[in-house]
């Protein structure tokens, strides 16, 4: 017993000191709370480290969980950069004073005004459209021109949706409220719910379920289909750009800001500047390219696979309201018994 105890004590101490080894004072680092975990991002950061010598240390979680973590940290946060996949979350963090204003000519030149905070507290890095995917064998494109079309009773049992807990659903609801007001939005959402949707907490599985023949229509982020098409050019699901006669399709962003307590502020800004310029590559090594997203830096070309989706109108005006409408959207979803 004693030998076992002392042996395991030795092993534990050895291992823990190994884990605890701190970055040496000379190493330049930047600590990032990141809600992106597509794997592709790792390549962007590795490239950044290769060029600048600054080590990127990631800590990941969902956008909302990371915001809550930043709140619990307060001013003493170990994070320098807050990188999430929802404009609303960035706005809330900025409003609560968790992000600091950054003046950077590089960022201001790279990112258009509607895709960044006027005070420089956050900047978009990619754009993603949440729109309608359908089974082209059973659905005609003119049946799915708008989110409201999915409330039509003919989709009963044929609709797949992401659960209410996911930030994508919440942001979509905020976009609808921003455009059409709360009452009309609630009517639409109740229409979806009345169609007894199948809730699947994964856009890629939703697409696979359409391909397998269960759902005929669904709402997904465009890049999941882009990535699926990259793997299999004949993937049997089509994309419809929603609300083209109105204000345009729902757009959200991957965006980042520098935390209020950032200990490595200069490195944090360097990282954002790099991601907004060099990191915007349309190839696999870029942030948009690696995940079939649209670049936030409009001087860059979108990834080649997205040419299949054609051109479209996106509603940039609504982005600024996602944060303020978030709580209202969650309540609306619950009231409408959206799961």
């Amino acid at each position: 017993m004693k030998t076992i105890l002392s042996l395991s004590a030795l092993v534990a101490v050895a291992l823990l000191t190994g884990v605890a080894r701190p970055a040496s004072a000379q190493t330049q680092v930047v600590n990032v709370y990141s809600a992106r975990h597509y794997g592709a991002l790792e390549k962007v950061f590795a490239e950044f480290t290769r060029e600048t010598g600054i080590q990127v240390r990631l800590s990941s979680g969902s956008s909302q969980a990371l915001l809550e973590r930043l709140r619990a940290d307060g001013k003493q946060t170990p994070a320098d950069v807050f990188l999430v996949i929802d404009a609303g979350t960035l706005q809330l963090a900025a409003e609560e004073g968790l992000l600091q204003p950054v003046r950077s000519p590089v960022l201001e030149a790279a990112i258009p005004a509607e895709l960044r905070d006027p005070q420089g507290r956050w900047f978009a890095l990619t754009q993603r459209m949440r729109t309608i995917a359908y089974n082209p064998k059973r659905v005609k494109p003119d049946e799915v021109q708008d989110y409201a079309d999915l409330a039509n009773p003919k989709w009963r049992g044929r609709l797949c949706l992401r659960p209410a807990t996911h930030i994508y659903t919440i942001a979509l609801t905020s976009y609808l409220i921003a455009n059409r007001g709360e009452r009309e939005t609630e009517r639409i959402v109740r229409g979806w719910v009345a169609n007894r949707p199948q809730y699947i907490d994964s856009d890629s599985r939703i697409l696979e379920t359409i391909a397998a023949g269960k759902c005929d229509v669904a709402i997904v982020n465009h890049y999941y289909l882009g990535n699926a098409l990259k793997r299999d050019p004949n993937f049997p699901v089509a994309l419809a750009w929603a609300n083209q006669r109105g204000s345009g399709v729902h757009v959200n962003i991957t965006g980042a800001g520098v935390t209020a307590g950032a200990a490595n502020r200069d490195n944090a800004i360097k990282l954002l500047e790099w991601l907004a310029t060099r990191g915007q590559d349309a190839g696999d090594a870029g942030m948009p390219g690696g995940n079939s997203e649209y670049p936030a830096n409009l001087t860059q070309k979108p990834p080649a696979i997205l040419e299949r989706f054609g051109t479209f109108k996106a509603d940039y005006a609504a982005i600024a309201r996602y944060g303020a409408l978030q709580a209202q959207s969650i309540k609306l979803l619950e009231r409408a018994r959206y799961r």
């Binding site: 597509y38 794997g39 240390r57 800590s59 990941s60 994964s202 856009d203 599985r205």
Partner: peptide, 27 residues
């Protein structure tokens, strides 16, 4: 582990879950 781990410290479980939550089951 997700909430309290030191920066840059991934474990097998955080890595698996991040990919699984995106249905990247193969990864």
């Amino acid at each position: 582990t997700m909430f309290l781990r030191p920066f840059g410290m991934e474990t097998l479980s955080t890595w698996a879950y991040m990919l699984a939550s995106e249905s990247a089951w193969v990864g």
